[in-house]
């Protein structure tokens, strides 16, 4: 233990991991989801290589159902930072008209997110992909390695993970195999918010409370972000002061009623909150081990 504070230690550890990948992997990519964890991850990459830019591209897998404000934010940030941003969309899915309203959350997520990600990784032959996942998010994530091996089918085998000791990360793979790398593994949700606050990192305005048009559906508040929203009989669009604790496809992301506009207010609200952050995501609630199954299938 040194004189650094826990945030400084977390930052240094993440930078170390990001540099290892840049130095050792042939063709890495940073996956960017536009959410707050991605914002932190990208910020750490900017810091890790300064005065150079990150020596790898940034990639967003766009399901075509993200909030409009997310896409605007993404494009502006990539331009301002001078980054090489790849946007990948599963065109087959688009041609088949796959969407959360018509096909349900499971099919939509599988085709437009999981399959799209695999497609993109294969297309560009990336041998390592950074993700912003944290071990505190969900029980099965707690066992994930920082350097997480994926076979040629992008599958994760939780029973056959490489031991990971010290900072001696083993990134060796055969052709076709790949690594997922999680530099934020040891961060908690509170750490992420504190760091955003300390470093003045921009976040999508959807995290801040504002009056927005929402519909109550299955106990969740879903925002009407564009005219693709399929309003069901009896459903009413209401103007409510809401914000989002997590961001994804707008039809699958529940808002919470809130007055928290500023970062300190958001952090305060988070500290007083009694529900965990992923509750806003519809896909995690199916049954006990659903996230683990998704990961084995190649979901990030």
């Amino acid at each position: 233990m040194s004189g650094l504070t826990h945030l400084e230690r977390l930052e240094a550890e993440s930078i170390h991991i990001i540099r290892e990948v840049a130095a050792e992997c042939r063709n890495p990519v940073m996956l960017y989801s536009i959410g707050k964890d991605s914002s932190v991850l990208l910020h750490l990459a900017m810091k890790a290589f300064y005065p150079s830019l990150p020596p790898f591209p940034i990639m967003h897998v766009d399901t075509t159902w993200k909030f409009r404000e997310m896409i605007e934010f993404r494009d502006r940030l990539a331009k301002d930072l001078g980054l090489d941003m790849i946007v990948h969309i599963n065109q087959e899915g688009v041609e088949q008209g796959i969407g959360p309203f018509s096909h349900g959350s499971a099919v939509h997520t599988d085709v437009m997110k999981t399959q799209a990600l695999k497609q993109a990784l294969s297309k560009y032959q990336f041998d390592a992909a950074f993700g912003g996942a944290r071990r505190d998010e969900e029980k099965s994530r707690a066992k994930e390695r920082i350097f997480s091996f994926r076979d040629a089918n992008h599958r994760w085998d939780p029973k056959n993970q490489r031991p990971e000791l010290w900072r001696t990360y083993n990134n060796r793979i055969h052709k076709g195999e790949s690594m997922r790398v999680f530099p934020l593994s040891n961060w908690t949700e509170l750490d992420v918010w504190q760091y955003i606050y300390r470093e003045d990192i921009p976040i999508v305005p959807l995290y801040r409370a504002k009056v927005r048009p929402v519909v109550e559906r299955d106990g969740a508040l879903i925002m009407v972000d564009d005219d693709r929203f399929d309003l069901k009989p009896g459903e009413v669009i209401q103007e409510k002061r809401v914000r989002f604790r997590t961001l994804g496809c707008y039809p699958l992301t529940g808002a919470v009623e809130s007055d928290a506009e500023t970062l300190p207010e958001i952090i305060e609200e988070m500290l007083l909150s009694t529900t965990s952050e992923r509750q806003g995501r519809v896909i995690d609630q199916d049954h006990g081990a659903s996230m683990e199954q998704k990961k084995q299938e190649g979901y990030f």
Partner: peptide, 9 residues
């Protein structure tokens, strides 16, 4: 069966 990491403060 494996190593898991937990957080508290």
């Amino acid at each position: 069966i494996d190593v898991a990491y937990r957080f508290f403060a």
